[in-house]
Write a protein that binds this DNA or RNA. Sequence first.
RNA 1: GCCGGGGUGGCGGAAUGGUAGACGCGGCGGUCUCAAACACCGUUGAGCUCAAACUCAUGAGGGUUCGAGUCCCUCCCCCGGCACCA
Length: 882
Amino acid sequence: MYDRYEPHNFEAKWRKRWADADLFRTREEAGRPKFYGLDFFPYPSGAGLSVGHCRNYIPTDVLCRMRFMQGYNVLHPMGFDAFGLPAENEAIKRQRHPEAMVHEYGATYKRQMDLIGIGYDWSRSFYSSDPSYYKWTQWIFKRLFEKGLAYRANAAVNWCPKDKTALANEEVVGGLCERCGTPVERREIPQWFFRITEYAQRLLDDLDDLDWPEGIKNQQRNWIGRSEGVEFEMSVAETAGSGRFDLEAEQVKAEAELRFRVFTTRIDTIFGMSFCVLAPEHPLVEQLLLRSDEEHMAAVTTYIQAAKALGDTERQAADRFKTGVDTGFKAINPATGKPVPIFVADYVLMGYGTGAIMAVPGHDQRDFDFARKYDLAILPVIAPSVEQTDLVIEAHAKGNAFESKDGVLINSGEYTGQTVAEAQHNLGVWMESLGLGERKVNYRIRDWLISRQRYWGCPIPILHDQGGSLEAVSDDALPVELPAVDSYEPGDDGASPLASIPEFLNATNSEGRLARRETDTMGGFACSSWYFLRFCDPANYTQAWDPAKVAYWMPVDCYVGGAEHAVMHLLYARFWTKVLFDLGLVPVKEPFARLQNQGQVLGYTPYRSPRPGETLEFGESGILVSFEEAEQLSDDELQWRWVRMSKSKGNVVTPDEAVEQYGADALRVYELFVAPFEADVQWSNEGMQGAVRFLSKVCRLVSVFGPRFQPQWREGLCGEGKDIRRWTHQTIRKVTDDVERFAFNTAVSTLMIFVNNLSDAINRVGMDAELSEAVESLILLLSPIAPHTADELWEGLGRTGFTYHEAWPTADSALAAEDEITIAVQVNGKLRDTITVAAGTSDADLEAAAMGSEKAVFHMDGKEIRKVVVVPGKLVNIVVAN
RNA sequence: GCCGGGGUGGCGGAAUGGUAGACGCGGCGGUCUCAAACACCGUUGAGCUCAAACUCAUGAGGGUUCGAGUCCCUCCCCCGGCACCA
């Protein structure tokens, strides 16, 4: 047996034995509880894994291994998210076919995951680009299509000119392509969408019951962006501005043909409306232009053209000065019956609400800014109280709208004096009773744009006939396979490369007539929206899954991955699951019962300040330099920073290097121990050395004690050695709890304390049976964390088989209980002494013992005792007069 | 601006309202060694220039409490997300 941790001598041996024994094959035995542990579906990049990725896989593995030892049937699968832009872009760069490439990269991932001892059931693995998988992605697409949840529409979409494809809203960050940082453009192309908006409320409501990090739930809530308000109709009074209409007469004709609807969350401020605004794309604008005089027509036309010429990023920059143009028309404020001017301005977005607003400059900052610029009336209608209007005036004088939701209405006719809440309710009712409008809920979330004008994705199983109507490919003709081609580079014309492949393009529809295949493919997020279902039944050739198997395994009990997918994958997968639930295809409304986000591993990375003439990359605050270059630079030029490990930064430590230098178990221990699971950590060789030291201590302890080890220790227990048994059972309890709550750092630290205590104890006491129990428990508790070492030591003690097959130790609370406790003695809340008493000492005896403390007596200084607080098992606080 | 999450030794971090700083890294002293590295043992919040005792200490300031890192209020700073969404 090794008295030091010598990973090169045994780790590879154990990995081979595990593989030979098919140790991690999913068990589905009746009568056992199930546990489904899952890591985010990785795209296998050519760079391979870094130790940063391991931060995801190791903790899940620890939990899954413990669950198995606790007697669960455990499903712990892994596969590859192979379709999509990252794979295709890399393949183009390397002039390779993506399929061969992703399989090669996937094999590297698998090798590295095996290298660090992750216990995946590889028999269930698949690539999302396998026809046997994407057949069912298409099958689910069809179900959505049949339900009207997948539809094709012409829309102005986010187009990335570098990736040459349309992107979902979720993939655009600050107007830039989330993947490559290129500013996106607006393009009008017919696209496929999933109607996720129809599920907005349920996606919002069901968040409440999920055991997910609050931050992620919040991001989803923000993204869904529910707001309650009133949508109502405004009619246009064709105005004197044109000289062709008589305002008074038109006002009488309130049923004027031209109407538009506005949405507001602040119906209580309607008496303060002093103008309204249409988005430049609003359909009414055209109608108005038809009736406009030349002067206004020219101004509005010019403005709209300018607005369209602006990129989305520029147009939506929040700090931009507001611009707009008066149409010359007026609309009637339904609350006051008075006309207000209609403007066109690009700060109003066509995509939200109705694309038109009532503007209340007194109480909305955007409207306020606009009103000041165009010299429009600013009417105060909300104030802290009817009498107290100076705060509003003051705010306006300082250039701020008074946006408070507290307070009451002023200058608002019969509603004056009502609180904001009252008026919102009453005005909503009033609108509804007159049929002018209704209370309504709006969501910020838009439908999910799923089509991509790229080759490497799951083909959309739709046929277009010559009349332009759409038909789904019949189920028995699935999958629609991607044609094997040599050249698949995207074009700039908004068409998929598949459109230029006649063998793919031309097909016949169900009536035998010529048809054209849909040539867009699905974005990768479609593939990852159901893979967790396929893992339940991955080799099923007749259906996407056996409902009984999905019913057994779902939901995922613990889902682990990075926080960056908060509003993409995690929202999409929830949506698909809900749709499948509604179709009766899965029995759960939510796919992931518990979610954990791991922190990143940061590498120490050299940067230097830009030299004259140099510009910084987007998002960088210095110029990245290589480690070689860094050595040449002076200290004041260099800035070292901790940044996320990535190949492009040159700061990656691979698991191969870490395992070679320190060992797989050391890597596992280090990553678990170095910080809380969700915190970012700074990679440190010293820290790795500490992990090695700990494992060496364990090896030494077991090897020194080995000759005294009693496999049948239960028979040798003599009732003595209570300390040892107490440590053992306290450790079992704490480690089990900590692993369950993802507190791996404290779980490891508990084991360290246990090892320190035992190492000391084996030299001091006999008690071999009690120590044998302790050492055996230690090895089993260590098994999920450092499985190679645990198995090696297990074998070294003469035991056979794998620790994975042993039962997880259970804590006996009677044995774990302390029989002596240290009690803190405080005087006026300050610690003055500690005393040791038997557990279960009565409050009165505790108090008496505390009073007997010399140090306490000294600090009481003979003063009057006002009160004595006794906390059983903890402390006694003596409160004396000052 | 809005919404989250945070601020504890030289560093990573522990602490169900009850002995702040567990555990580890680093440092210091020692053992081993010709020597170094490794390993092992001891020590390590600050102040009071041995110790004991005491005092101070969880971003700042108030408050609640017998007792606050933990709860409440005000403010500062850091990280993440959203952002002209009416």
